[in-house]
Design a protein around this nucleic acid. Sequence first.
DNA 1: TCGCGAAGTGAGAATAGTTCTCACTTAGGA
DNA 2: TCCTAAGTGAGAACTATTCTCACTTCGCGA
Lengths: 149, 149
Amino acid sequence: MPHPDATHGDCANTTTLYGRARVSAQRAAIAEVVPLMRGAFTAEDLHRAVAAHTPGIGLATIYRAIAAMQEAGALASVGERDGSALLAACARNDHHHHLVCTGCGRVVGIECPIDEATLNAAEREGHLVTSHQIVLYGLCSRCRQREGA
Amino acid sequence: MPHPDATHGDCANTTTLYGRARVSAQRAAIAEVVPLMRGAFTAEDLHRAVAAHTPGIGLATIYRAIAAMQEAGALASVGERDGSALLAACARNDHHHHLVCTGCGRVVGIECPIDEATLNAAEREGHLVTSHQIVLYGLCSRCRQREGA
DNA sequence: TCGCGAAGTGAGAATAGTTCTCACTTAGGA
DNA sequence: TCCTAAGTGAGAACTATTCTCACTTCGCGA
Ligand SMILES: [Mn+2]
Ligand SMILES: [Mn+2]
Ligand SMILES: [Zn+2]
Ligand SMILES: [Zn+2]
């Protein structure tokens, strides 16, 4: 029976976030903030958010944690904005893609649209598809209302 | 009846490549090289290829011509490699996407796989899809043979 | 054909997101 | 508890791309 004291142990399932990588105090702090990030964010966004609770944390540490989380599949790359890579926390572990609201950054998962027909078309061209990169952009209902479109 | 002399006029239909933008001697030279580029290439690749026939042409000129050709829809962005944007000449003017061979850079066009089901799924989440970015990666038949996979 | 003004050019500086270096600390398995 | 590979922070470095600026030129209109 585990001790109910929540101040110890894998708060916010750091194993899911970081895989087999070590969990430093900094990464634990990052692990608490990442699930709170609403929608897509940049490395600098995350740095700012984490630094609010953990002053002095280095930007390089953020980048290294991001790399570890991407490695572990807990963080997805969802395009870019103004030259900065956009990221999104992702709890799903099946194959899917992301739809990003260009108004507010909200992110939802989308089933992979690549079907047999597409793969067959590629094969007809002589190509064997090994990977793909898909990001959809749009407007969430709230942003559509706000813009009155 | 047009004069058959091919050394004058819009060689390699520069209007298609550059749209309404001006066609300088440098852009004319670029227009001759772009259709010869095999598969995906970077700005530096193009610069090197053009400079072989037009020494001294500036890299900034290449970037500006690329921007104009993308604007005109004659050049497509097909992902990146080692931090550099990958481009591909594209003659089609219908909506489609690209499949890039990770071995040799060969590029083929692919029909858009996004169907009603995907759009409906997005709508069910409250989102209206306004655009999307899709690139497929794979191996062409020649590269598969070479790698013996 | 001529003139003019906006667009393009080239060299190099600037920008900026990301990665790297290095001395130091620390997580976590043995 | 020890040991060491992994992580950290500050700042330098990297580098693809964009910008600046003085100069040239394309191409339209008179
Ligand atoms: Mn997801
Ligand atoms: Mn194409
Ligand atoms: Zn929104
Ligand atoms: Zn190939």
